[in-house]
């Protein structure tokens, strides 16, 4: 952090931490239990740019001193300071040790293998990735199936990284290991847990 700390980092947390974090958690749980469903987290937090509002809300609700955060981009000093102030979460550059990782838009999928995928005895010790996209509805159609989806679900996020579907396919093959991913855009998100299988149409 530079000497010039923006006062912005002290603002924008939950105005009511108990019910705000409960609301966001239930929305994220709904998203994880229903992969592919677009879930709006509302405007309960105001995270500093370039952190997407939905990513800010998820981390404000779920991060704390037990969950090291990793930022892929270098321009997240304000966001990192904001999260450290509001949640106490440490920021780490060690990808294998990160509980949550905030990726850059169109992040290189080849580098995702650095993140924790858990161990065969503890597959839960894996990173949850937050990937910003340009839009959640106007892109190329992808069809999902897996637990949480009755038959099939369609999503159409725009601005996905090159090779996204095949990277997610490789991740799904690792099951029960693997990372879990949240696509974030504005105040909305789509959850893609490791169990979700993605087919390009």
């Amino acid at each position: 952090m530079t000497a010039q700390v923006s006062t912005q980092i002290y603002e924008g947390g939950f105005s009511d931490p108990v019910f705000g974090s409960q609301t966001v958690f239930r929305a994220v749980m709904d998203a994880m239990a229903n992969p592919g469903r677009v879930i709006d987290l509302g405007q309960l937090t105001q995270a500093p740019a370039p952190l997407e509002p939905a990513a800010g809300a998820v981390l404000a609700a779920l991060a704390d001193y037990d969950t090291p955060l990793c930022f892929e981009a270098q321009n997240n000093a304000d966001a990192a300071a904001w999260l450290t102030f509001h949640t106490g979460a440490p920021v780490t550059a060690d990808r294998a040790n990160a509980a949550f990782a905030v990726l850059v838009s169109r992040s290189a999928v080849g580098t995702w293998s650095d993140f924790a995928i858990g161990t065969s005895s503890f597959p839960d010790r894996s990173t949850t990735l937050l990937l910003p996209v340009e839009d959640l509805r106007s892109g190329k159609r992808l069809t999902l199936n897996g637990p949480g989806i009755e038959h099939a679900a369609d999503i159409a996020p725009a601005g996905l990284p090159e090779g996204f579907a095949s990277a997610m396919g490789e991740n799904a093959k690792l099951f029960p290991l693997g990372f879990d991913l949240l696509l974030v855009c504005g105040s909305e998100l789509i959850a893609l847990p490791r169990t979700t299988r993605i087919m390009e149409n």
Partner: peptide, 12 residues
């Protein structure tokens, strides 16, 4: 802590 455990439980 419990909420994070629930999310991982749903994922696996």
């Amino acid at each position: 802590m419990i909420r994070r455990a629930i999310l991982k439980a749903i994922a696996i």
